[in-house]
Amino acid sequence: MAAIVTTTQDTGLPDLIEDGGEVRVLDTILAERLGYDRPRDIRKLVKRHREALGGMGSLLHRGANPGPKGGRRATAFYLTEVQTLFILAKSETARANVELAYVTQVFTEFRRGNLVARDADTQARLDAYQADRQARLARHLEEKEAREDALRFLNRGCRR
Results as ranks from 00 to 15, higher is better:
Arg50Tyr: 09
Tyr78Ser: 07
Arg160Thr: 11
Met56Arg: 03
Thr104Glu: 04
Glu81Cys: 02
Leu45Val: 09
Val98Ile: 08
Gln134Pro: 02
Thr28Asp: 00
Val103Lys: 12
Ile4His: 01
Tyr102Asn: 11
Arg147Asp: 10
Asp121Phe: 07
Pro68Gln: 14
Ser58Glu: 15
Arg133Pro: 00
Asp132His: 15
Thr108Ser: 13
Glu109Gln: 14
Val5Asp: 09
Pro66Leu: 02
Gly157Gln: 14
Gly157Met: 12
Leu45Ile: 08
Asp132Ile: 14
Glu148Leu: 15
Gln123Pro: 02
Glu51Thr: 15
Met56Glu: 09
Gln130Lys: 12
Asp15Leu: 09
Ala101Cys: 01
Tyr36Lys: 02
Glu99Arg: 11
Ala146Gln: 11
Ile29Pro: 03
Gly70Arg: 09
Leu115Pro: 08
Leu88Val: 02
Gly55Val: 03
Asp119Gln: 07
Pro39Val: 02
Ala101Ser: 09
Lys44Cys: 03
Ile42Pro: 00
Arg152Tyr: 09
Leu53Met: 06
Gln9Thr: 15
Leu60Val: 15
Ala124Phe: 07
Lys47Pro: 04
Gln130Pro: 07
Thr75Phe: 04
Tyr102Met: 13
Asp132Val: 14
Leu30Cys: 05
Thr28Gln: 03
Leu30Gly: 01
Leu126Val: 11
Arg33Tyr: 09
Arg112Glu: 14
Arg43Lys: 10
Arg43Gly: 08
Arg38Asn: 03
Lys69Cys: 03
Gln9Leu: 14
Val25Lys: 04
Ser91Gln: 00
Thr108Trp: 14
Arg50Leu: 03
Arg139Tyr: 08
Gln123Tyr: 08
Ala31Phe: 00
Gly71Phe: 04
Glu142Tyr: 10
Arg62Pro: 06
Gln9Ala: 15
Gly12Ala: 03
Arg139Ser: 15
Pro68His: 13
Lys90Val: 07
Phe110Ala: 13
Ser91Asn: 02
Arg40Asp: 05
Thr28Met: 00
Phe86Pro: 06
Ile87His: 01
Arg72Tyr: 01
Asp149Pro: 06
Gly70Cys: 03
Phe77Met: 01
Ala31Leu: 02
Asp41Tyr: 01
Ser58Pro: 10
Gly55Met: 07
Ala146Glu: 13
Arg72Leu: 09
Asp127Tyr: 02
Leu79Pro: 02
Arg136Glu: 11
Pro66Met: 01
Asp127Met: 12
